[in-house]
Amino acid sequence: MDEDLKEDLHEDLGLRPESRTERRANRRKSRARRGFGCFAGIMSLLVVGALVVGAALGFGKGRDAIEKLFAAPDYEGAGTTAVTVEISKGQSSQSIADTLEKKDVVKSARAFERAARDDPRSRSIQAATYTLKKQMSAKAALELLLDPAKSVLVTRVGFPAGKTKLEITDILQKSKAVKLPAGAAAAAMAKPWSLGLPSYAKNNPEGFLYPGTYDVPKNATAYTILKLMTTQFAKVSAELKLPQTAQRKKLDPYQAVIVASIIAAETNRSEDYPKVARVIYNRLQRNMRLQMDSTVHYVVGKDGSVFTSDEQRNIDSPYNTYKNRDLPPTPINSPGKEPLRAALNPAPGTWLYFTLVNLDTGETAFASSPEEHQKNVDKLQAWCAAHAGRC
Score class of each variant (00 low, 15 high):
313 R>V: 12
313 R>H: 12
313 R>W: 12
314 N>I: 00
315 I>L: 13
315 I>A: 13
315 I>C: 13
315 I>G: 13
315 I>T: 10
315 I>R: 13
315 I>K: 13
316 D>S: 15
316 D>V: 14
317 S>T: 10
317 S>N: 12
317 S>R: 14
318 P>Y: 11
319 Y>V: 09
319 Y>I: 09
319 Y>R: 11
320 N>R: 13
320 N>D: 03
320 N>C: 09
320 N>W: 09
321 T>G: 08
321 T>V: 09
322 Y>M: 07
322 Y>K: 07
323 K>H: 12
323 K>L: 15
324 N>Q: 13
324 N>K: 14
324 N>E: 11
325 R>F: 15
325 R>N: 13
325 R>P: 00
326 D>G: 14
327 L>E: 01
327 L>F: 05
327 L>C: 00
327 L>P: 01
328 P>S: 10
329 P>K: 05
329 P>S: 08
330 T>K: 06
330 T>L: 14
330 T>I: 06
330 T>C: 04
330 T>Y: 14
331 P>L: 09
331 P>I: 10
331 P>Q: 08
331 P>F: 10
331 P>N: 06
331 P>G: 06
331 P>C: 10
333 N>K: 13
333 N>W: 03
334 S>M: 02
334 S>H: 04
334 S>I: 03
334 S>N: 15
335 P>C: 08
336 G>L: 11
336 G>D: 09
336 G>Y: 12
336 G>C: 08
337 K>L: 08
337 K>N: 03
337 K>S: 03
337 K>F: 01
337 K>C: 07
338 E>F: 04
338 E>M: 10
338 E>L: 14
339 P>Q: 02
340 L>K: 08
340 L>T: 09
340 L>I: 07
341 R>F: 14
341 R>Y: 14
341 R>T: 03
341 R>I: 00
341 R>S: 09
341 R>W: 15
342 A>Q: 08
342 A>K: 11
343 A>D: 02
343 A>Y: 05
343 A>K: 01
343 A>R: 04
343 A>G: 02
344 L>K: 06
345 N>G: 01
345 N>V: 01
345 N>S: 04
346 P>T: 01
346 P>R: 07
346 P>C: 02
347 A>K: 12
347 A>W: 06
348 P>C: 04
348 P>E: 06
349 G>P: 03
349 G>I: 07
350 T>I: 00
350 T>V: 04
350 T>G: 10
350 T>P: 01
350 T>N: 15
350 T>H: 13
350 T>Y: 00
351 W>F: 11
351 W>A: 14
351 W>S: 14
352 L>T: 02
352 L>S: 05
352 L>P: 03
352 L>M: 15
353 Y>K: 10
353 Y>T: 01
353 Y>L: 05
354 F>H: 02
354 F>M: 12
354 F>C: 02
355 T>D: 04
356 L>F: 07
356 L>Y: 01
356 L>A: 15
